[in-house]
């Protein structure tokens, strides 16, 4: 997952629900140095008997916000969706000249 263009990641899930697997995998995909370089990660754990679906909120550096319902997505789809915008930002950055 490209985390260079993310400023904020907030995940909410119930660990005892089998559908929250992708939410936990998203957290495990964030590199260990990302927090030090300005990415804010918030993870909220729901109690065991809550039926609330797992959700992911992502904020990008250009201000775009994304809210994903993680309980219906596999981890590959989540990564694909987030990376689609990140790649656009990467291309823009490259074209603007560095």
């Amino acid at each position: 997952m490209i985390t260079r263009f993310l400023t904020n990641v907030s995940v909410k899930f119930n660990p005892f629900s089998p559908r929250s697997k992708s939410a936990r995998l998203v957290l495990s995909l964030i590199p260990s140095t990302a927090r030090a370089s300005g990415l804010r990660v918030e993870s909220k754990m729901l109690p065991r008997d809550s039926k609330e679906p797992a959700s992911l909120g992502v904020k990008f550096k250009d201000g775009k916000e994304m809210n994903l319902e993680l309980d219906k997505m596999r981890i590959t789809e989540v990564v694909e969706t987030v990376d689609r915008h990140s790649r656009q930002l990467a291309r823009k950055e490259e074209l603007s000249g560095n």
């Binding site: 660990p15 927090r35 030090a36 993870s43 754990m45 109690p47 065991r48």
Partner: peptide, 21 residues
């Protein structure tokens, strides 16, 4: 920095399963 990346999921106490609370 390490503790930020460590999340308590639950516990198994004498064969029974507990969540964070």
């Amino acid at each position: 920095a390490g503790l930020q990346k460590l999340m308590l999921l639950g516990a198994r106490v004498e064969g029974r399963v507990f969540d964070q609370e």
